[in-house]
């Protein structure tokens, strides 16, 4: 297989259906599996949670929860029971999906081929459908809470009168639309771009270098990429908290 073919092969999804009415089975399967993994273990741990001496797994989950809780407390000043669990889910789920990039680049595709899948993209966050699903969900929550907290009039006044005052209401509106639409766009494209580039480097290393040498830069990029996937998961979580915090605050 030529390097070009190899790279193109890694760009293709396992698609079921045609056009808009199609679904990326690889993305859906991996993301559901990882989300279920996190929620499953987490719920079992939470059910058995003791306020006495915690076990190792409980300790791990408590560290996660405490970490996210602290971030939310620092950045989010409203009162909302949803924000912290939402942030935790985002962080853990995105991190796990990003982590699929750490597996050898051909491992999951080969396995999938063995089960009859024509193509397989192992990293769900490397699919714009997923990153946009996340960011649009966050965007919808922003809109929802903006109306819920500030009311239609309060939110409308904020949109129309800032930043230039009432006389420039149309300009304010346009500014606000651009600003708010940029949020989900930047959220999803940032995550997608980082993961896409990361995986592309793994694919290039595997495609262009001889196998007996490829593992050296591969290992180096793995360590570096480990930082990136954590950072990207963290950034997505933090920005979500900040955006939702802004939706709660009246200026």
């Amino acid at each position: 297989m030529s390097p070009m073919n190899y790279i193109q092969e890694h760009m293709k999804y396992w698609v079921l259906g045609q056009g808009f009415l199609s679904i990326h089975l690889d993305t859906v399967i991996v993301s559901f599996a990882l989300g279920s993994l996190f929620c499953g273990i987490g719920i079992v741990v939470a059910r058995r949670a003791t306020s006495g001496v915690p076990g190792r797994v409980q300790n791990f989950f408590e560290i996660l929860v405490a970490f996210v809780d602290q971030q939310v407390r620092e950045s989010f000043h409203g009162r909302n029971r949803l924000i912290a669990p939402l942030a935790l889910t985002l962080f853990a789920w995105i991190w796990l999906m990003n982590f699929m990039d750490m597996l050898p680049v051909d491992l999951l595709p080969r396995l999938a081929h063995a089960f009859g899948a024509p193509h397989f993209k192992a990293v769900p966050t490397n699919d714009l459908n997923l990153t946009f699903a996340l960011s649009v969900s966050v965007f919808l929550l922003m809109i929802f809470y903006s109306f819920k907290i500030k009311g239609v009039r309060g939110f409308g006044r904020e949109v129309l009168s800032r930043p230039f005052g009432w006389y420039a209401a149309p300009i304010n509106l346009v500014f606000r639309l651009i600003e708010d639409l940029a949020k989900p766009l930047s959220l999803s494209l940032r995550l997608f771009g980082n993961l896409f580039a990361g995986e592309m480097i793994f694919v290039l290393i595997a495609a262009l270098l001889p196998w007996w040498f490829a593992w050296i830069p591969g290992l180096g990029w793995t360590f570096f990429h480990l930082l990136i996937i954590t950072l990207q998961a963290f950034i997505f979580m933090m920005l979500t908290i900040v955006y939702l915090s802004m939706a709660h605050e009246t200026h």
């Binding site: 259906g17 056009g19 808009f20 009415l21 199609s22 679904i23 990326h24 993305t27 859906v28 993301s31 559901f32 989300g35 996190f38 929620c39 987490g42 719920i43 029971r81 949803l82 669990p85 939402l86 935790l88 889910t89 789920w93 769900p124 699919d127 714009l128 459908n129 997923l130 946009f132 699903a133 996340l134 649009v136 969900s137």
Partner: peptide
């Protein structure tokens, strides 16, 4: 953009709900 987008929104909502 295809049905994956909606499937993932559902998945996201489900996991957030479970976590919460």
């Amino acid at each position: 953009l295809d049905l994956t987008f909606f499937a993932e929104i559902v998945a996201f909502a489900l996991f957030v709900w479970l976590t919460m």
